[in-house]
């Protein structure tokens, strides 16, 4: 093991290559405790969420108390301690989106798929999240389907899109190549 714990990392929990990204993030910040949030970002980006194992690893590596790591992870809404579904739908609940019908979108998803904010459908296919203003107020109401922002969406379009995810995963998985038209027909009002 290391002679100077500040310079060398604790061994990652597994051989998974993604841990290297996490280690790199910590090394970039000199394994300082204040790099906790940056490190958690790296973990979430690599693994999709923060599990207990990764929190333990980060705590040991940064020599931070575990309760502190857990406290920070749960303070910020951006971090998730649960794995998300195969697909994620983020509904913007910013003011502009709110007055232009965001509650209706959430309501529709809730009624149709029985999931609320932060929940995933039983089959693990679709997660519903909300965001505090995507800054796409000009296109309110806005939603993000698997990372792609869609503006001026309506209830039917959202439900249709989520159904498509549930029924045929490969067929409709949003890809950057898909033309805006095909997207538009599904999502835009």
């Amino acid at each position: 093991m290391a002679t100077n714990p500040r310079q060398s990392a604790v061994d990652p929990p597994s051989d998974d290559k993604r841990w290297r990204i996490v280690q790199a993030a910590m090394r970039r910040n000199g394994f300082r405790r204040d790099a906790l949030i940056e490190t958690l970002h790296a973990v979430q980006e690599s693994f999709g969420y923060l599990d207990e194992e990764s929190l333990r690893y980060v705590a040991r590596s940064l020599r931070a108390p575990m309760s502190h790591v857990y406290g920070v992870s749960t303070f910020y809404h951006f971090f998730s301690l649960k794995p998300a579904g195969e697909h994620t739908c983020v509904v913007c609940t910013g003011t502009a989106c709110y007055i232009k019908g965001a509650p209706g979108l959430l309501d529709a998803v809730g009624k149709e798929f029985h999931i609320g904010d932060g929940e995933t459908t039983e089959d693990g296919k679709v997660s519903l999240l909300t965001a505090r203003c995507l800054g796409s107020c000009g296109l309110a109401p806005a939603a993000v389907f698997d990372g792609q922002v869609a503006g001026k969406v309506n209830r039917e379009a959202v439900v249709e899109r989520l159904h498509a995810w549930q029924n045929g995963p490969a067929a409709v998985k949003a890809s950057p190549e898909s033309s805006p038209e095909s997207e538009g027909s599904a999502v835009y009002a």
Partner: peptide
Amino acid sequence: AAGCLSSG
């Protein structure tokens, strides 16, 4: 910018 990107 992000607004226009989200409409293609």
